[in-house]
Computed example of a mutant assay.
Amino acid sequence: MRHSAIQLMVGLGNPGPKYTGTRHNAGFWFIEALARREGIDLRSERKFHGVAGRWRAADVDTHLLCPMTYMNHSGRSVAALTQFHRIDPAAILVVHDEIDLPTGVVRLKQGGGHGGHNGLRDIASALGTRDFARLRLGVGHPGHSDQVISYVLHAPGREERAGIDRAIDAAVDVASELARGEWDRAQQQLHTRD
């Protein structure tokens, strides 16, 4: 099955040194890893309220974005870039931490609800649709819903972080397939690695 080529990959997280190593910043870690591997220059872009770059992979021009608006206001940054570059929501991939997946598991998903994730909620609200793709990076669950906020705003242990990093590496491995809209190929590689 062919999907839209991805014109924008958004990594979710919170800006500042206080949050750098926290689970909630897994989306930032993906964008940073992709930029390192591909030699992409990420720069602060005030008009997009974030750090952004451009990646040309297999004749597809893909924008990379890490909103610097804090998680709960990610939609402001995403909407600014998509409006400026006239990017359809179907051509957006949002990369985020996912507590409903075990640490180190990575899954692709098309559309759907926000599952309590405030970054996804704000992006859907800003775009007026939930019909964008998601790359879900498993960070595990603390065990009780009352502990979720504290959990995602703390750093994972060394073994957990290694698992998340392996998932990110696997996702970066299929980033060019995702950019081209080769969803099934990317999904097969990701979902058979567990």
Rank of each mutant, 00 (worst) to 15 (best):
F84D: 15
G111R: 03
S77A: 14
I99H: 07
L65I: 04
V105K: 11
T69N: 09
T103C: 15
D88T: 05
H114E: 04
G104S: 12
E98D: 15
A91G: 00
G75W: 14
L108E: 08
H63G: 08
A80I: 03
A90K: 09
H73E: 13
E98R: 11
N72Y: 11
L101W: 08
I99Q: 08
A91E: 11
M68C: 04
H114N: 14
E98V: 11
G115M: 08
S74T: 12
D100S: 08
L101A: 09
T69I: 08
I87K: 01
G53E: 01
D61C: 03
A91C: 10
R107G: 05
H96N: 12
F84R: 14
R76V: 14
A90T: 04
T82Q: 05
I87Y: 00
I92G: 01
D100L: 06
G113M: 07
V78I: 02
P102M: 05
G104H: 09
L81C: 03
C66N: 13
L81I: 13
H114W: 00
V95H: 09
G104L: 12
D61H: 09
R54I: 13
P89I: 09
R86F: 00
V94M: 06
W55D: 10
V94S: 10
F84P: 07
V105Q: 12
L108N: 06
D59N: 13
R76L: 13
Q110I: 11
V60S: 01
Y70T: 14
G113P: 03
L108I: 09
D61Q: 08
